[in-house]
Design a protein around this nucleic acid. Structure first.
Length: 196
DNA sequence: GACAAGATTTGCT
DNA sequence: GCAAATCTTGTCG
């Protein structure tokens, strides 16, 4: 994994393959500035996708929608689905390979009230799902392609706490390549969308 | 140009 | 546990 919190705080492993990035993102923080407020959350669950994956948006090549997944690692790929939900991913390397790590669940660290107000629901139910956390953090298509090194949405590397262990399982909500073990989560964390 | 499916969430039975 | 809500994207004709 990356070194223990580099000076800039920005992860140095994002140019690696999707699975390594997905695992490395666990424990990392996202700082979101919106409406004059600052919200900080900690990533507790992710999933890996890339061109060789039948379940990935990039499996059948480049399209207007997935173009961002082929851009520089460290950018945000946001997509709209089911006619009402947004989900966000961190673009992974190597650059131009159409890979990304879906952020499936986060744990509030700061500004919980702001998240709950936007979601209209208190507690872990406010951020324990890909579309839920996007709504809670006010992320939509306007953030597609955003550079995560800049405000108002910044990604910072953080180590897992002592005793925290990474668990791997098959992914959730997909029908193709459903048997591939590419979902990563912090074992036992109460904010994950579903236990391991 | 038309149609089916979708990296989900929520509410009701 | 199951189905509805809701609409964009990709694929096929």
């Amino acid at each position: 994994m990356g070194s223990a919190t580099s000076s800039s705080g920005f992860p140095d492993f994002l140019d690696l393959a999707a699975d390594q990035v997905a695992e490395g993102l666990l424990g990392c923080e996202i700082e979101r500035k919106l409406d004059g407020e600052t919200v900080v959350v900690r990533i507790v669950e992710t999933e890996a996708y890339d061109e060789m994956d039948e379940a990935s948006h990039t499996f059948r090549g480049r399209t207007p929608r997935n173009e961002v997944m082929f851009s520089e690692p460290g950018h945000l790929y946001v997509y709209f689905t089911y006619g009402m939900h947004y989900c966000c991913n961190v673009v992974c390397g190597p650059a131009g390979h159409g890979a990304a790590a879906l952020i499936r669940a986060v744990e509030p660290v700061e500004g919980v009230e702001s998240i709950e107000r936007r979601r209209g629901i208190p507690g872990k139910a406010a951020t324990n799902g890909p579309a839920k956390l996007c709504e809670g953090l006010g992320i939509d298509l306007e953030m597609n392609g955003h550079d995560l090194r800049r405000e108002p949405l910044v990604l910072r590397e953080r180590q897992l706490s002592d005793g925290e262990i990474v668990a791997r399982t098959t992914r959730i909500g997909i029908t193709r390549a459903a048997d591939r073990v590419r979902r990563y989560l912090i074992a036992g964390n109460p904010y994950v969308s579903r236990p391991a």
